[in-house]
Computed example of a mutant assay.
Amino acid sequence: MSIAQATATVTPYIDFWNAVLAPKFNAWRHILAGGLHLHSAKVFPSLPIRAGDRALDVGCGWGDTAIELARRVGPTGSVLGLDCCNAFLDVGRADAKEAGVTNLSFLEADVQTNPFEPVHDFCFSRFGTQFFEDPTAGLSNMRFALKPGGLMTMVVWRERADNPWLTLSKEVLLRYLPPVREDAATCGPGPFSMTDPEAVTRQLMIAGYGGIRFERIDAEVLVGRDLDEAVAFQLAIGPAGEVYREAGPKAARLFDTLVAALKDELKQFVRPEGVMMNSSSWMVTAQNPGSPPRPRG
């Protein structure tokens, strides 16, 4: 598929990202981008990408990783950043222009339904694939976009217990609020859909990859410059934010109680630089071993 043909087919998940989450993520970019960058910063030095390569960045968000990839491949290479949220891509386009990066383009598209021509040397995704509604389709099309021998690296969150920055506040709120209904609107499978190496390995093998490897990445992430900001962040984003949002009027009535409980729990993580909490991810690498697979979509 050519760039001109690619689209982001509107699904309930994509609509939820654009209508509900993108505005919240943009409002909290100063926290989220810094935390996510800590994981990609540990990954980038070992990425198998060279000057002159063509790279695809799937679920590129604000485009910070796409910009880094574009710098790595240099003027003789090129990078295409994909995301289903144009609100994120607009930020990436502005940042790339300000940085003087000219070998990078952005496209609103969903790789699960849009196969791209097998012309890329490298495919990357940081915390994007775990939101795939159909991971086999998404991973297959990522492989289809690679030349024979091309490499893919994705970063996904590890177990909930290893990511208290995403889970602890939810546990606190569930002392006071009901769990999220199964039929609630959602952004997709969610941040913990690819925590199990055995399950992810099966998905990758079904998608036709070889040379599959997992490497653990640990980092402390900033969840707020102070306790007040950390609480506001947790109520807006992630699993705790979902519980708070779906509780509606009850959450509003209990707001002061919830804030006090969150502050009491999060105060142990206050450092001179802000509120810092543990996080952990997998860097997953795999290879397109031979001829391009049949695309999905």
Rank of each mutant, 00 (worst) to 15 (best):
R126P: 11
A99W: 00
A137D: 10
V101W: 00
R126Q: 09
V119R: 07
P135Q: 03
F131K: 01
D121M: 04
T136N: 00
R126K: 11
E117I: 09
G138E: 05
T129R: 01
N114D: 08
T136V: 15
H120L: 01
C123H: 06
S105D: 15
P118D: 06
E117V: 13
P115C: 12
D134R: 14
P115F: 13
T136S: 01
E133T: 12
D134K: 10
A99R: 05
T113A: 15
F132D: 09
P118V: 08
T113M: 03
Q112C: 14
L107H: 11
G128Q: 07
S105P: 02
T129H: 05
F132H: 08
F124L: 03
T136C: 00
F122S: 08
F122W: 09
V101R: 01
K97C: 06
R126W: 00
D134A: 13
T102I: 05
F122P: 12
N103Y: 07
F116S: 13
F132K: 07
E108D: 11
Q112W: 06
P118T: 09
N114L: 00
T102Y: 02
E108L: 03
S105N: 09
P135G: 09
V101E: 07
F116M: 15
E108A: 14
E117W: 03
A137I: 10
F131S: 04
C123M: 01
A137S: 14
C123W: 02
T113L: 05
G100V: 05
R126F: 01
E98N: 12
R126E: 01
D110L: 04
A109Q: 12
S105H: 07
P118I: 05
A99P: 01
G128V: 10
F106I: 07
S125G: 14
T129Y: 09
K97R: 06
E98F: 05
P115W: 14
C123F: 00
A109H: 10
Q112A: 14
E98C: 03
T136K: 02
H120E: 10
F106E: 09
D110W: 03
E98Y: 05
S105F: 02
G128L: 05
G128I: 13
D110S: 15
F127N: 12
T129A: 13
P115K: 14
H120W: 00
A99S: 08
E117G: 10
F124G: 05
T102V: 12
Q130P: 10
T129G: 07
V111G: 05
R126G: 03
F116P: 06
V101P: 14
G138Q: 02
V101Q: 04
G100Q: 02
N114C: 14
